[in-house]
């Protein structure tokens, strides 16, 4: 079985501050990490590898520093790594990113499973995985909390708000994973040593054979108009008195704001 896992290097949003004036992320000096959902997708791939002797390719689009995240993926158990790195990719929105990644996946070819994280913490769109599946015209299962592989088939638990669906699909197919799918893992020293003996292939847009008219800032159908920090909610209100009085007051307040619904 051949698995391709797509990962993104993102700023550690726990450490990111937003410039209140410009509304943009202050990225300088902020440590970067492998996007958490993507890491869980990779850990799942490694689990599948242990059972089925799969080959894992990790693929990322990003600046040269993204090599670090790919090395971490190799240390966690991936077999080979490819970085899509070209100015032509810069400023891609999710559609353009999906074209870049989808194009590169076609070039890699011969895949059975494509694993993605549900969403990246620096954008939270959850769009790239599904878009790539559409582009490649293969089935997709999103929000996977469990994956079982059988011969030419996968059985996946898909998380819903109030339970889960069990979905079976032929392969090849694309699955996006949520963090609940497995426990986090740390690279072993042996893994790290091996990761630095391997090569991280760097592909330009031409080498990846992607359609250059569908990538990059200028070819992105969406653009960010403005980003801003929502103003902080005002101070809460503390009610004092007997429980009965407070309850009455709350109901009055809710009624006043037409938030009472049925009663």
């Amino acid at each position: 079985m051949n698995i391709i896992v797509c990962i993104k290097q993102v700023p550690d949003t726990n450490e990111v501050k937003i410039d209140p004036k410009t509304g943009t992320l202050k990225r300088e000096g902020v440590p970067t990490i492998m996007n958490p959902d993507d890491k869980h997708a990779l850990i799942e791939a490694v689990k599948i590898k242990k059972k089925t002797k799969a080959q894992i390719t990790v693929l990322s689009m990003g600046p040269p520093q993204a090599e670090e995240a790919l090395r971490e993926a190799l240390a966690l158990g991936a077999d080979q790594a490819i970085l899509l790195c070209d100015r032509a990719f810069a400023g891609s929105d999710t559609w353009a990113t999906a074209n870049a990644i989808g194009g590169a996946i076609k070039t890699i070819g011969n895949y059975d499973l494509l694993l993605f994280g549900r969403q990246a913490i620096d954008g939270d769109t959850a769009q790239v995985g599904p878009q790539v599946a559409e582009l490649l015209n293969i089935p997709q299962i999103t929000y996977a909390q469990k994956i079982e592989t059988e011969k030419n088939k996968v059985k996946v638990e898909r998380q819903m708000e109030d339970g889960y669906e069990i979905i079976e699909s032929n392969i090849p197919c694309l699955i996006t994973c949520i963090s609940e799918i497995n426990e986090t893992e740390y690279p072993t020293l042996k893994g790290i040593r091996q990761a630095y003996k391997k090569e991280v292939k760097v592909w330009s847009a031409d080498q990846a054979k992607v359609d250059k008219s569908k990538i990059g800032l200028l070819n992105s159908p969406t653009s960010v108009k403005k980003s801003f920090t929502p103003p902080a909610k005002g101070q809460g209100q503390t009610l004092k008195g007997s429980i009965k009085d407070i309850a009455k007051e709350i109901i009055d307040l809710l009624k006043e704001r037409e938030l009472t619904g049925g009663f």
Binding site: E68, A75, Y186, P187, L189, I192, R193, Y196
Partner: peptide, 18 residues
């Protein structure tokens, strides 16, 4: 070195949560 940094990152994350 990059490898030492990778070890540092791994052990820092491990220590903080485990």
């Amino acid at each position: 070195t990059p490898k030492q940094l990778a070890i540092k990152k791994m052990i820092t994350e491990f220590v903080d949560s485990e």
